[in-house]
Simulated assay, not measured.
Amino acid sequence: MTIGSHLEEFHDLPAFTFPGTGDAPADVSALPSPESVAWRIAVDSYDAKEEWEEAFARFLDTVDTRQVRALIVGAWSEVYDSAPDAVIKALVAARDRLPALRGLFFADIVMEECEISWIVQGDVGPLLEAFPDLEEFGVRGGNQLVFPAVRHERLRTLTVETGGMPVEAVRGIAGSDLPALVELDLWLGTSEYGGDADVSDLEPFFAGTRLPSLTCLRLRNSEIQDAVCAALASAPVVARLQILDVSMGVLTDDGATALLTGQPLTHLKELDLSHNYLSEALRTRLLETLEPAGVEVDAGADDADSDEEDDGTVWRFVAVGE
């Protein structure tokens, strides 16, 4: 599976592409009120007629950005070949013109523009430093992604979507102090696309000491999903979660059994294991054990892709790789 459509909503606001960027017409005569939408700024990823920074400058000159609450960064030119250093620099330079900004999604880029694992990323640390009042931050693409350890007092939701997350980025997030963070969503990906983190690198998330407000943990889209679930079976953070999501990865009966036979899960509101390689027997066992306790369980169906070689070798895949 790949990402085929842009965000339709972000930070509880409908997404709106600023005219003249992306595929939006250039007419700016009837714009929505600045605070009513999540503004998407994008240029063509191939042979762009305008650089992203130029489109952003037009946005700053056209919209009363003092009221803008959410911003979506779409494609920049040559996104498959160029790091977004100039894009990040332009955003940081505009910090004083965006005092109400509370939501920022970086790289809302779909497969027709650039596959997720081809997006050349950069250091997103300066964005969190420049906007200390952010409540929601998301970034897509793991290729050359840098996410240093930070302290951010107000961030409530952090999403990092990759087909392969570099171990140093995982460690940076794990080493961050995020006292207000309620939801953490990491797509760990595969080693084929640079996802070289081991389950031991996730230990700070399992302990949860740097995330005292966390109630929703999503560790998904991983080829090490069984090991993640085995660690979660005794992880201290689970006891205070409301939502646990281990979907989109290579989850087999081994990982699900470890999770089910570990610490109690009946306090959860939701458990998501969709896109998995579970037997029907274990899928039924999960539902019969947890649903009577009031847990909303998505045990998925037999919808995960796999290939079998002539020699009997079975290859299993995460939901979003390339």
Rank of each mutant, 00 (worst) to 15 (best):
G175S: 14
G249W: 01
R316V: 07
R95H: 13
W39F: 04
T190L: 11
L178A: 05
Q67D: 13
Q67W: 12
A197E: 15
Y193S: 05
G195N: 11
F16T: 04
A75N: 13
A94G: 14
R156F: 01
S45D: 14
L286Q: 00
W39I: 07
A94K: 11
A319W: 01
D185Y: 09
F59T: 04
E53K: 03
V167S: 15
D198C: 07
D311M: 05
A48W: 11
E168N: 12
T65W: 13
R40Q: 14
R66F: 04
L278C: 03
F147P: 04
A75W: 12
L60K: 10
D23S: 15
P14H: 11
L265Y: 01
D96L: 03
R95V: 12
T313C: 04
D226K: 08
N221Q: 09
D81F: 06
N276K: 14
I41Q: 07
F137I: 00
A319S: 13
D185E: 13
T157F: 03
P212C: 10
E309V: 00
L260Y: 02
P132D: 04
L145H: 05
V167T: 15
V139M: 07
S5C: 10
I88T: 03
N276I: 10
W187G: 05
M165A: 12
E270S: 07
V120E: 14
I72W: 04
E161F: 13
L127M: 09
L134C: 01
D185F: 08
A86F: 06
A93I: 13
Y80A: 15
F137M: 02
V63T: 02
K89I: 00
G164T: 10
E291S: 12
A281M: 02
H6F: 12
R140A: 14
F105P: 10
D198H: 08
A24F: 09
L127W: 05
R40I: 04
A231G: 06
P292E: 08
R58M: 02
D108V: 05
E288C: 04
L155H: 03
D185A: 04
D61I: 01
R95F: 10
V238K: 10
A48E: 09
A42W: 06
K49T: 15
S45E: 03
V150N: 03
G138L: 08
V199I: 08
L214R: 07
Q225G: 08
P148A: 09
P204W: 01
A38E: 13
A227S: 05
L127A: 09
G249Y: 01
A227Q: 03
T190V: 07
R171V: 13
I116D: 11
F10W: 14
D64G: 07
G125R: 14
S200Y: 11
D198Y: 05
D254A: 14
F317H: 14
L98T: 05
L188P: 08
M1W: 10
